[in-house]
Amino acid sequence: MQGNSQQQAYDRGTNIFSPDGRLYQVEYAREAIKRGSPSVGIRFESDDEAGVVFVASGRLRSSLQVPDSIEKIHKVDDHVGVASAGHVADARQLVDVARRQAQVERLRFGEDAGIEALTKEITGYIQEYTQAGGARPFGAALLVGGLDADGTPHLFETDPSGTPYEWEAIAIGGNSEKIQGYLEAEYESDTDADGALELAFHALEDASEGGLESEGMSASVISGDGFRSLSNDELHELIDGHDLAADEDDEE
């Protein structure tokens, strides 16, 4: 028993390295993210419009669940938002860190928080939970997207190790490899918000089994006009308009 528990100690309790230099708890956290439903972020920059779109899908547990209570896309500030995958409760905690930091930046510098600076504040916070004893890493990945003060759009990903990555288009969460493959084949930066939304929905549909259920989905656009979430009618229209709906959804 003693020998056995010593072997297992590397993936229990605190974050410590395994003999071959891995952090099992961080790796398990990445696995937790893959178990959830996916979120997609796409950066766009055409002559007259620049920004980031987020599209997230979520699973309704029952027809009685209120769809709007599934929160996967969060406004952080007027010029920046976050889409999450993985444990929603963990993600919400990070969203609050981002919201507070966005206000701290404004108090300190009198300017909107830069997207990269904000992302690095979040990843710094995430990283602390990969070293602190007795703590568990965050079981959530975030996409942080928005516009810098000069109007340049940026889209970053955070992972449970606390590393930031910048992307033109990315999928996180369940089935993300397949969605990413679609994005890699189809992405073009020179488009507007509608074009980016269309690509995101097509990518999600391509990886789905039998089409999209608009009830579980949400989408937001961050552009020069600020942060805007699409209404349920707009979501329906987009999904039906591009013939992406699941079959049983057609007659609703």
Partner: peptide, 8 residues
């Protein structure tokens, strides 16, 4: 920027 510096 001067905005950031002056606020700081």
């Amino acid at each position: 920027s001067m905005q950031a510096l002056s606020t700081t």
